[in-house]
């Protein structure tokens, strides 16, 4: 059970990981609570409007007559799922592009990386806004995940490619090449196991990006605003002028939860990144 051992080591020696563990556990509990929610998130005016946080409604209620706490349990779950959908799709693209570019080299590598770098420097938000604008009303949160996935791979493809390039120089690759193994199998058998930990770390980073993008697009009203997410929570609060009307908890709840989720994921990312990178490990030892 190496994974359990790694988690135990990290909990013991890395304070960032401990914090990430607490934050993400909170998020996980909230996601699970959505399964036993007493309220249907799609129904409005089921509780009294605009009541501040209390024992009965820990995060208060909204101007749409919804319990914010229970509504947020669905929102967190959906935002997280969206992140997973995006990450899954963009991982597949990133791995394929990264492995092909790194392994094949030559003109194919040049072309793929030219495309890749173009997407890296391009301002994606205006393009996503254009897309969201045209799909308005037809967008559900699954298609949003797919769209974000299609745009979310370039950074990681580059990273995977550079890993493959360094792996290619190692002795075992050359041994495999000389012994006549097909390049494809070298890639799958020899390189993928080394690339996977990086893929895992970038997955978290990609989820951060995608959940953040959802917040941005939702606030602009360009996502499916009927599905509870962190972004749509803010959208509805803005629609009802929550801040001006003094219903501060309606803004505070999703903001707080967003901060916990983002910090948790980020701390997990940097902790794991350091664990798998021998150079940073060495530095840790050195300091």
């Amino acid at each position: 059970m190496t994974i359990l051992r790694i988690i135990r080591d990290l909990l013991k020696y890395d304070s960032r990981f401990r914090l990430a563990f607490i934050f993400l556990s909170t998020i996980l509990i909230m996601m699970l609570l959505s399964l036993v929610s007493p309220y249907n998130p799609n129904k409005t005016f089921v509780v009294a409007m605009d009541t501040p946080p209390s024992l009965e409604h820990p995060f208060g209620t909204s101007s749409r007559g919804q319990d914010i706490f229970w509504w947020m349990t669905f929102a967190v779950r959906n935002s997280f799922l969206l992140g997973m959908v995006t990450a899954a799709l963009s991982r597949v693209i990133a791995i394929i592009v990264g492995l092909i570019a790194g392994y094949e080299g030559g003109w194919l590598d040049k072309v793929l990386m030219a495309i890749n770098d173009s997407f890296v420097v391009m301002p994606l938000l205006p393009i996503l806004i254009l897309l969201g604008f045209l799909l308005r009303g037809k967008m559900n949160f699954f298609t949003l995940g797919l769209i974000l996935g299609v745009f979310g791979w370039p950074w990681d493809a580059r990273l995977i490619r550079s890993q493959v390039l360094s792996l290619k120089e190692r002795a075992f690759t050359r041994t495999a090449v000389y012994s006549g193994t097909h390049p494809f199998w070298i890639t799958i058998h020899e390189h993928l196991p080394f690339v996977l930990p990086i893929v895992f770390a970038t997955t978290i980073n990609n989820m951060l990006w995608s959940i953040g993008m959802e917040v941005t697009l939702s606030v602009l009203g360009l996502s499916d605003v009927s599905t509870p997410t962190i972004g749509t929570a803010l959208f509805w609060a803005n629609q009802h002028g929550a801040l001006v009307a003094g219903v501060w908890w309606w803004i505070a709840a999703p903001t707080l939860i967003a901060i916990i989720l983002f910090l948790g994921l980020y701390l997990l990312f940097s902790s794991i990144n350091e664990y798998i990178d021998p150079r940073t490990r060495l530095r840790l030892i050195g300091g």
Partner: peptide, 18 residues
């Protein structure tokens, strides 16, 4: 800086505004 870095622009702006 580590605490602010992962938070989306929108949320940071909102918190500062509030």
């Amino acid at each position: 800086s580590q605490a602010v870095r992962p938070i989306p622009y929108y949320v940071v702006a909102l918190v500062l505004l509030v």
